[in-house]
């Protein structure tokens, strides 16, 4: 083997030498996991779009129905409370007080 052939061999050996970069032994499993996650994300995204489409359709149907039946908005049964503002305020305060008692005293005792 002359010098030139030896240089050729050195170059070929360098070119055929395995690279230091190696993929982890569980690389295939990681890819499969990523594909699975991607599929779940894609499905979630699709569900979200269906939900948005559903809400828009429902609102559209609502507007259509209102215009068709010439619905006029009004307070209806709540006109009864017009003469009883004191009762309404008492009701709100009473319910709020019950909530506060429930959260601060009763639930504390249960957890204790």
């Amino acid at each position: 083997m002359n010098k030139d052939e030896k240089f050729e061999e050195v170059v070929s050996n360098a070119l055929e030498r395995e690279r230091e970069f190696e993929l982890p032994h569980d690389f295939a499993d990681r890819v499969l996991l990523k594909i699975q996650q991607h599929a779940v994300e894609k499905e979630a995204k699709r569900d979200k779009w269906w939900l948005i489409a559903g809400i828009i359709s429902m609102l559209g149907a609502c507007v259509f129905a209102i215009t068709r039946v010439e619905f006029k908005p009004g307070v209806g049964v709540y006109t009864f409370f017009q003469g009883y503002w004191g009762l309404v305020i008492f009701g709100i305060l009473f319910v709020s007080a019950l909530h506060i008692i429930d959260k601060t005293i009763l639930r504390k005792q249960e957890s204790g």
Binding site: F27, A28, L32, I35
Partner: peptide
Amino acid sequence: FRGLIKKHERLVSH
């Protein structure tokens, strides 16, 4: 597909 990855991962990593 796992087999396909195993078969070609060396090529892609190179």
